[in-house]
Deep mutational scan, measured.
Amino acid sequence: MAMNGTITTWFKDKGFGFIKDENGDNRYFHVIKVANPDLIKKDAAVTFEPTTNNKGLSAYAVKVVPL
């Protein structure tokens, strides 16, 4: 089920960042999981599918909501 969130941290040079989800949890995401990576920036609103990996909470099918 899709969730909403906000990008809180973005490491462009490393290709990953973190999203604060609607429950207040931080989720890892990688640029290859983003549909529109050219719009990635700190504080951008996103929708995504929540999941977990071996390191904890993460996100896939991430879409940055255009302003």
Rank of each mutant, 00 (worst) to 15 (best):
M1Y: 12
A2P: 14
A2G: 10
A2W: 12
M3A: 05
M3F: 07
N4V: 10
G5A: 03
G5P: 00
T6V: 14
T6I: 14
T6P: 00
T6C: 09
I7Y: 01
I7N: 00
I7F: 01
T8G: 05
T8I: 14
T8P: 01
T8W: 08
T9L: 15
T9M: 15
T9D: 09
W10G: 00
W10F: 11
F11G: 01
D13Q: 11
G15R: 07
F16G: 01
G17L: 02
G17Y: 02
F18E: 03
F18W: 10
I19N: 01
I19E: 00
K20G: 04
K20E: 08
E22V: 08
E22W: 07
E22T: 09
E22L: 06
N23M: 10
N23W: 08
G24A: 04
G24E: 05
G24D: 05
G24R: 04
D25L: 08
D25G: 06
D25H: 09
N26E: 11
R27G: 00
R27D: 00
R27N: 01
Y28W: 11
Y28T: 04
F29C: 02
F29Y: 02
F29R: 00
H30N: 13
H30G: 06
I32P: 05
I32V: 12
K33V: 15
K33D: 15
K33F: 15
V34F: 05
V34I: 04
V34A: 07
A35R: 12
A35C: 14
A35D: 12
A35F: 13
N36G: 03
P37N: 04
P37M: 05
P37A: 07
D38M: 09
D38P: 07
D38G: 10
D38F: 09
L39K: 12
L39Y: 12
L39A: 11
K41Q: 11
D43V: 03
D43G: 15
D43Q: 09
D43M: 10
D43N: 13
D43P: 02
A44K: 04
A44R: 08
A44L: 06
A44P: 01
A45S: 11
A45R: 13
A45M: 12
A45I: 11
V46E: 01
V46W: 01
T47N: 07
T47P: 01
T47Q: 10
T47E: 08
F48K: 00
F48T: 00
P50V: 04
P50G: 05
T51E: 12
T51W: 14
T52H: 12
N53D: 09
K55L: 10
G56L: 08
G56F: 09
L57E: 04
L57T: 03
L57S: 04
S58C: 11
S58L: 08
Y60M: 14
Y60T: 15
Y60L: 14
Y60A: 15
A61W: 10
A61C: 11
V62T: 01
V62W: 02
V62Y: 01
V62K: 00
K63W: 11
K63A: 09
K63N: 10
V64P: 03
V64S: 02
V64F: 04
V65A: 08
V65F: 11
P66G: 11
P66F: 13
